[in-house]
């Protein structure tokens, strides 16, 4: 990608439009990241001027959808960071198993790979029958994909390797049915999932959970926004509940750190007060 076609002030103008017209607030996202995403889209979609770009976002609701999907990063995979999933199996699920009913929240679930991975873990721990997985994202397009449970066959080799390094002992392919270049995950998983849009910037707590996963979302937020989202998670977590972050994210410097304890070297914390 070539240099910046759009200036900082252009990006600010667009983000203000988005907030005023549609209530999407990206103004507290990491600046360099968001500027790069906006520039990338401007070049990818071959706009000739900033004015044209701005007009299209304001006037074309379909393009707005594309804009939101493209400036957020939705890259994900199943059993991403296998040691993390291994730690869930060994250190978190046994505790969750002691509850009569398990509620889990995947905040920023993207197209659902993380949620299906979790459902597989729960089934292998014999807990799926009493679990409910709430999976939310700002982005309705990725949620549509997640709801269908259809993924590309081409990725399955990598995912089943990840599954095995996470401590999986079964044949990963038994969890889905392949059809041409796609696979569909078994209905019994989807029956335990509830998908819904939820914006971590502006929406409130909607339930209390024993485990919240928010992985690779906070890296896109600036410090102040991270602080508010941590408060939201604390409010949405039962006492002794678990909070799991992405491998490069930390609670360490946050305002809620004192009331959480990291359980092992993976990015999993437990609410202790």
């Amino acid at each position: 990608m070539e240099q910046n076609a759009l200036k900082d002030t252009d990006v600010e103008t667009l983000l203000n439009d988005l907030l005023e017209l549609y209530g999407y607030d990206f103004t507290e996202y990491s600046k360099a990241s968001i500027k790069r995403r906006v520039n990338r889209l401007y070049i990818l979609d071959r706009f000739l001027s900033f004015a044209e770009f701005r007009y299209r976002i304001k006037a074309d609701p379909d393009y707005l959808k594309r804009f939101v999907e493209q400036i957020t990063v939705t890259v994900t995979e199943m059993f991403r960071d296998p040691p993390f999933y291994k730690s869930l199996r060994e250190n978190v699920l046994p505790t969750l198993g002691t509850y009569p009913f398990i509620r889990i929240w995947h905040a920023g679930c993207s197209s659902g790979e993380e949620v299906y991975s979790m459902a597989v873990l729960l089934e292998e721990a014999n807990l799926l029958h009493k679990s409910l997985l709430y999976a939310t994202d700002i982005n309705p397009e990725v949620l549509d994909k997640a709801r269908k449970g259809i993924f590309s066959l081409a990725h399955m080799k990598q995912y089943s390797e990840n599954y095995i390094s996470s401590g999986g002992k079964k044949e990963f392919s038994q969890y889905y049915t392949a059809n041409y270049d796609k696979v569909i995950f078994d209905d019994r998983f989807r029956k335990k999932m509830i998908f819904s849009t939820h914006n971590l910037v502006s929406d409130r707590s909607f339930n209390v959970f024993q485990l919240i996963l928010c992985r690779n979302v906070l890296i896109y937020f600036d410090k102040d926004l991270q602080t508010r989202v941590f408060d939201l998670f604390e409010e949405s977590l039962e006492n002794l509940g678990f909070l799991a972050l992405g491998s490069k994210e930390t609670l360490r410097f946050s305002n809620i750190a004192a009331r959480f304890k990291q359980t092992d070297k993976e990015k999993i914390w437990r609410k202790i007060a």
Partner: peptide
């Protein structure tokens, strides 16, 4: 990524 306030951002795009 390097930010204007001289902090670092990570990005998994």
């Amino acid at each position: 990524l390097v930010e204007k306030n001289l902090t670092l951002s990570l990005d998994y795009s």
